[in-house]
Simulated assay, not measured.
Amino acid sequence: MIGKWAGAMMMAGTVIGAMTGAAAGTARGQTADADDAQIVELRQYRLVPDVRDDFVALFDAKFVESQERLGMRIIGQYRDHDDAARFTWIRGFRDMAAREQGLKAFYFGPVWQANRAAANPMLDDNDNVLLLKPAAPGLGFAPAKARAPDAGGDAAGGAVEVVIEYLWKTPDAGFAAFFADEMTPALEAAGVDVIAAYVPLGEPNNFPQLPVRDDRKLLAWFVRGDSHDAIAAALARARGSDRWQSRVAAVLHDAEERPPQTLRLDPTPRSALR
């Protein structure tokens, strides 16, 4: 394998099939086209020690607009709140054909070729990737307002959390509908800002130079708030509510193969979703 991020795509080359149009961002707020989040990669990176700030600065400066100009969407990028060696980001596409075309264009293109020598030595493991689709209509990421224009300084914070439910069965066996019809209303009634929910795509990876996990029995849901403490308080209200206890708790417990994983994420200065 040549390099760590793009594998065999490290060779120099020209942009292949560059796509037109730029992505619009990510959180709820604007009325722009949201079809560019029909396919999503949830990418969790482990970095070598003591380089995360440098990686964030490089990513925010070089890898946001350069990908969006090729038709991909950088939904958000984050420091892991609980692990100083982790960086998580979310990338969206209109469909699998757009994914293949966009990734080829970027990893063969001039921006990655000019910056890969700086990025790759900071990566320890970049294979923890989920390839996802919306769990139900209306549960994909909606567009957002424009992000901060440059990578310098600290933008107003906020917090994002991802809850990955590990299930006994694939989510299309009933859990995705249960999440949309019962869990989401119960969460939102308690003040939890549920911004999206995604399930495994279940199709072959059409850009194998970037590996993805083959997990099929999970559902990932995304929330945001002013802080992680605020999110925790809202989740506690939801789980303590009569609605949750009567209509959610038992079904959720039976569906879970093991306890969920929660990613507590701090947006970088230029993350659109915060």
Rank of each mutant, 00 (worst) to 15 (best):
G13V: 00
I16L: 08
I16N: 02
A18L: 11
A18N: 11
M19I: 15
A24Y: 07
A24T: 14
G25N: 05
Q30F: 14
Q38A: 14
I39R: 04
L42V: 10
V51W: 00
L58H: 07
K62M: 12
S66G: 09
Q67M: 13
E68G: 06
I74Y: 01
H81P: 05
A85C: 09
F87H: 01
F108K: 06
W112I: 05
N115T: 10
R116F: 10
A117D: 11
A119L: 06
N128D: 14
L130P: 06
K133Q: 10
P134W: 08
P137G: 10
L139N: 00
K145Q: 14
A148H: 13
A156C: 05
L167H: 03
A173S: 13
D181A: 13
T184S: 12
E188G: 08
V192N: 04
D193G: 08
V199Q: 03
P204S: 09
P204I: 06
P208A: 13
Q209I: 12
P211C: 08
V212I: 10
R213W: 05
R216K: 14
L218V: 10
D229L: 12
A230L: 09
A230Q: 10
I231N: 01
I231F: 04
L235A: 08
A238D: 00
W244G: 02
A249M: 10
H253P: 12
P260E: 08
T268V: 00
